Simulated assay, not measured.
Amino acid sequence: MILKTVALLALMAAIFVADTLTRYEIAVAVFYILAILAASALLPARTTRLLTALAVLLTLTSFALTRSGTYDTGLVNLAISLLAIGITAHLALKAVAARAAAERTQNRLFHIARATSLGEMAASIAHEVNQPLAAIATSASACQRWLDQMPPNTDRARQAARRMEDDAHRASEVIARIRAVTQAHKTAPQAVAPAHAIHETLALHAHELEHEQVRLLLDLPDNLPAVHADPILLQQVLGNLVGNALDALRLVPPSERTLRIAVHAGGNGFAEFTVEDSGAGIGPDETPQLFDPFWTTKDSGAGLGLAIARSIVTAHGGEIAAHPAPGRGAQLAFRLPVSKEASHD
């Protein structure tokens, strides 16, 4: 930040010298708006205000030191320059405040979306946690029986104890995943393996996939490049798309329920994610509105899932779109930039 401030001060000094040495008729001071605009984009608002005040002071000082030209014309140019500096600073600071407010709102929406997804996944979470807990209870009973034998069968008891430890770790991992999804935090992009993010997301929907008899197809080639993304927000996007696909698949017979998830390296610095279902599909008139906030075709939907997904993907420098799937159903596809780090699945 210090180097940026010094560079802007040097620019303002050059403008001051030029404004002082030129005639009144040449309004060089108006170029201070370039420094103000740069400051608003690169430096804190407080620094921008200080540089604006300095620009006003330098403009007045230059006018007082100028000795050539028509004085009356100089007064007009002085007024124009000061007005331009003031208006530019005001608008620039308003834009900075608006961007900050938008970022705060976006972070709150991310947190709301995570909480909403958590509610929808409650049944799956209960199932995922109950499985290892039931296995622990079974192993504990077996361990007790092996120890009650005369003589105690310590080898079998140790095996049962190890199974209890493994199942306890499984339950802990499920809880850790849910806690990560629901915690509000600032976006922290890093190298994320696409396959890992997909498997983590599917783990949260495992019960629904099994209960709804969904045929799952994964197309995850070896050596996929890592993408540059926040891992939790990437799971949020995938979770929204998978959740919507499952809702659509409930409208067709179990024998026709297929969910396909694919990732491919686009060769243009992006990785392409596709979530495709064999549900009822989307109509041509619905496609343009899918990503609008609060627009939904569900009776109990809030209409935020896809809007949040688009915000997340866009914030990461990517794009998202919806298309009819080949044959029947819907295809949601998004792309994210490939990480520059040497990380692969």
Rank of each mutant, 00 (worst) to 15 (best):
L118S: 15
V252S: 01
V96P: 02
A168M: 13
A245H: 02
R179G: 13
T73V: 10
Q131T: 15
K340S: 14
I320Q: 01
A115K: 15
R99L: 13
T59C: 10
E319A: 12
Y32H: 05
L21W: 06
K298F: 13
I85T: 05
M1I: 12
P152G: 08
D155P: 01
A137F: 10
V174T: 13
T296P: 03
A342W: 09
H205V: 00
A140K: 10
A191C: 03
M121Y: 07
V275A: 00
D299I: 15
L304V: 08
G301A: 03
A10Q: 09
L147Y: 01
V227P: 04
V227L: 04
I36N: 03
I232D: 10
F16A: 12
A18R: 11
G317Q: 07
D299G: 08
S339F: 06
E286T: 10
V181K: 12
G74S: 04
A135D: 14
L50A: 13
M164V: 04
S81L: 04
A135S: 11
A315G: 09
A280I: 14
W295T: 09
P288E: 06
A302P: 04
M121G: 07
T187L: 10
G329A: 02
R310F: 07
L306Q: 01
A280V: 15
D292L: 13
V56L: 09
V227A: 01
D277A: 01
H185W: 06
G303C: 06
A280P: 00
S172P: 02
R250G: 06
V252P: 00
L51H: 02
T182K: 06
S62D: 00
L37T: 11
T73G: 14
